Simulated scan of single mutants.
Amino acid sequence: MTEFDAKAVAERALPLVDLTNLNDDCTAEDVTALCKRTVTDHGSVAAVCIWPRFVSHAKPLLDGSGVQIATVVNFPGGGEDTVAVVQETRQAVADGAGEIDLVMPYRTFLSGRPGFAETQIARVKDACGDAKLKVILESGEIEDPLLIHAASKLAIDAGADFIKTSTGKVKINATLKAAEIMLTVIEEHWRECHEEVGFKAAGGIRTVGEAAAYLNFADRIMGPQWACANTFRFGASGLLDALLAAIDGGEAATGEGY
């Protein structure tokens, strides 16, 4: 672990945040409050990430702000009903979502049916139209490094614009170990195909020190100029307060950089 400039990290991380509320008891009023937090005195977050049922509610609240609306499909279980997931995706895009976070059917992948997962991702990508597709691997459930590598490559080959660590709904969510593997696959894809694919760390990232650790991995693997809102996101609900406090010189900048 190393010392780091908390204010500089916070200023860098703020525009990379997908401000998230995927609580089971989320209400329209909660989404309104979330949208009001997206534009701060220190700049805007990248997106809000909310349940599909709230996309049309959020759209007029964020029009003109530059903040994207992200929503989740096949969430959180990563099920096998591809027809329903495609329909869910099309409806979300029609309602105003600019980004779709799809839970890959990781159980079918783990059971030796990678083709099923690849087909679902490809069909959802087609349904996205102009919306970005972020594929959630649920890396904490996959666990095995070689399988995380394989799942990352499968998702990218099937059309993912981003690969994302986790739903935030399982025991093990974002980890630096998974991030390193996923970023390595992204780097390999860039060298092979010269196509940009983004990375999203989601689940359990709450401190400036934790944000610094993930950004350090991105800098080391992809280069210091790579991480921007088009290529790197934090999926978080609690991180924003820590970032704002650090920028203002407060005490919420806890945690150390790696």
Results as ranks from 00 to 15, higher is better:
Met1Tyr: 13
Ala8Cys: 06
Val9Cys: 09
Glu11Val: 04
Leu14Arg: 04
Leu14Ser: 08
Pro15Phe: 12
Leu16Asp: 14
Val17Tyr: 10
Leu19Thr: 03
Leu19Ile: 09
Thr20Lys: 01
Leu22Ser: 15
Glu29His: 09
Val31Met: 06
Thr32Arg: 13
Cys35Asn: 05
Lys36Ser: 04
Arg37Asp: 00
Arg37Glu: 00
His42Gly: 00
Val45Tyr: 04
Ala47Trp: 03
Cys49Arg: 05
Phe54Val: 11
Phe54Met: 13
His57Trp: 03
Lys59Trp: 00
Leu61Phe: 01
Leu61Ser: 00
Asp63Val: 11
Ser65Trp: 05
Gly66Ala: 01
Val73Phe: 06
Val73Lys: 05
Asp81Met: 11
Asp81Glu: 12
Val86Ala: 01
Gln87Gly: 04
Glu99Lys: 13
Ile100Ser: 05
Asp101Ile: 06
Leu102Ala: 07
Thr108Glu: 14
Gly112Ala: 15
Gly115Ser: 09
Phe116Pro: 01
Thr119Phe: 06
Thr119Leu: 13
Ile121Gln: 12
Ile121Lys: 06
Ile121Met: 10
Val124Asp: 06
Lys125Cys: 09
Asp130Phe: 02
Asp130Pro: 10
Leu133Gly: 09
Lys134Tyr: 04
Leu137Lys: 09
Glu143Ala: 13
Asp144Glu: 14
His149Pro: 01
Ala151Asp: 00
Asp157Lys: 15
Ala158Gln: 05
Gly168Met: 13
Lys171Asp: 08
Lys171Tyr: 14
Ile172Pro: 10
Ile172Lys: 07
Asn173Pro: 02
Leu176Asp: 08
Ala178Lys: 04
Ala178Phe: 03
Ala178Ser: 15
Ile181Asn: 02
Thr184Val: 01
Ile186His: 05
Glu188Phe: 01
Arg191Gly: 00
Arg191Leu: 12
Cys193Leu: 15
His194Gly: 03
Glu196Ala: 03
Glu196Ile: 03
Phe199Val: 10
Lys200His: 12
Lys200Val: 12
Lys200Glu: 13
Ala201Tyr: 06
Gly204Thr: 02
Ile205Arg: 12
Gly209Asn: 07
Ala211Ser: 13
Ala211Asn: 07
Ala213Arg: 10
Asn216Gln: 14
Phe217Gln: 10
Gly223Arg: 14
Gln225Arg: 08
Cys228Asn: 15
Ala229Tyr: 14
Gly235Pro: 13
Ala236Leu: 10
Gly238Lys: 10
Gly238Leu: 09
Leu240Ile: 15
Ile247Met: 12
Asp248Cys: 04
Thr254Gln: 12
Glu256Asp: 07
